[in-house]
């Protein structure tokens, strides 16, 4: 399969579209189940996200009279489309190499911001004061977690660039092939701080509990998604599940893509297992044991601990490469 049909297949079936959605929903279900078990509850069944989605499709969709109708309707679609493109770009080691022109970490970083921007647009067009508060918090959070994320990606770029003889190489293909030769990046002790920094950014991007300040349902009544109901809310939920898969897959590709299986089925299985591990340690365990931070605490946290750890890795890597 090649050309337009190949891209279409990648977008709709594997690794984007259906595959990513199924895995993302599975992760969300497992996350809720383990969260409940950690609180000694029974918890919802693992397929609960699918039920929620079907339920939302059956609900009435309300559009506030004070809102900007077009922006309000299109914002969830824009966020979902952006996320769909992102999961299409992410390679599955041993199975899918990634799409040639989209094979770039910096590009992925840009696309990762689209759902957050769509959420901001949708919320600010809804005309709700809670939405406005949510938007300002979402903006602060985005600025805070992007800083360590960029430094981590720069560090990995310099590491990959050293192997291929350039200053920095942001191609996912060369990052995976580097790790195939020299072992996973995580096995290098200087990259452990960068990995911890990346893990700290995951709950921020997903809006999970210590950093769910923009959507704090007890303070500002779900904030940006307050005015959304029915299928538009369902689209935001879908975007969230895709994002869950996307960031965990990114962590897997960047830090431990090897070992992968010889058969494609085994490779996919190992890949999902690694992603699930990432979600469990960075989202579920943290979510079940911590309370929500204030926005200023979260901002300070991101600019101190993860940024510091990422900078440590960056300095060590530059030292290792150029001195």
């Amino acid at each position: 399969m090649s050309g337009i049909m190949g891209y279409f297949y990648n977008l709709v079936v594997f690794p984007g579209g259906l595959f990513a959605l199924a895995v993302g929903m599975f992760f969300a279900g497992i996350d809720r189940k383990i969260y409940a078990r950690m609180q000694r509850r029974v918890g919802p069944p693992i397929y609960q996200p699918i039920i929620d989605l079907i339920k939302l499709m059956h609900k009435e969709t309300l559009i506030p009279r004070t809102s900007n109708q077009k922006a309000f309707r299109l914002a969830p679609l824009a966020g979902f489309a952006g996320m769909l493109v992102l999961v299409t770009c992410i390679p599955v080691p041993g199975v899918f190499q990634g799409i040639g022109q989209l094979d770039n970490l910096l590009l992925i970083l840009y696309i990762l911001a689209i759902p957050a921007i769509a959420l901001m647009v949708g919320a600010s067009s809804s005309g709700s004061p809670f939405g406005a508060v949510g938007v300002s918090r979402e903006m602060v959070m985005t600025i805070a977690y992007e800083v360590p994320l960029i430094i981590v990606i720069l560090t990995i770029g310099i590491k990959a660039g050293n192997a291929s003889g350039v200053l920095a190489d942001f191609s996912l293909k060369s990052i995976i092939s580097l790790q195939k030769e020299t072992g996973s990046i995580l096995s290098d002790i200087t990259m452990v701080p960068a990995f911890i920094a990346f893990l700290c950014c995951i709950p921020g991007t997903l809006g999970a509990v210590p950093f769910d300040i923009p959507e704090a349902e007890t303070e500002i009544a779900e904030g940006p998604i307050l005015e959304y109901s029915g299928i538009s809310l369902g689209l935001f939920k879908l975007t969230g599940w895709l994002k869950m898969f996307a960031v965990s897959a990114l962590a897997t590709v960047l830090f431990y893509p090897v070992p992968y299986g010889s058969h494609w089925l085994l490779s996919v299985f190992l890949f999902i297992l690694k992603c699930l591990f990432t979600i469990l340690i960075s989202v579920t365990l943290v979510r079940a044991t911590m309370a929500r931070m204030r926005i200023d605490q979260a901002y300070k946290f991101y600019l101190r601990i993860p940024t510091g750890l990422a900078l440590l890795s960056l300095v060590l890597t530059i030292f290792h490469v150029h001195v």
Binding site: R40, D52, E217, I220, E222, Y228, L233
Partner: peptide, 21 residues
């Protein structure tokens, strides 16, 4: 509370009236 967990029925307390059933 864990003793009478209603989340096992799929229930969820939501913050917005527009999400409610």
């Amino acid at each position: 509370i864990p003793r009478y967990d209603v989340e096992r029925l799929g229930c969820k307390y939501c913050g917005s009236p527009k999400h409610a059933d």
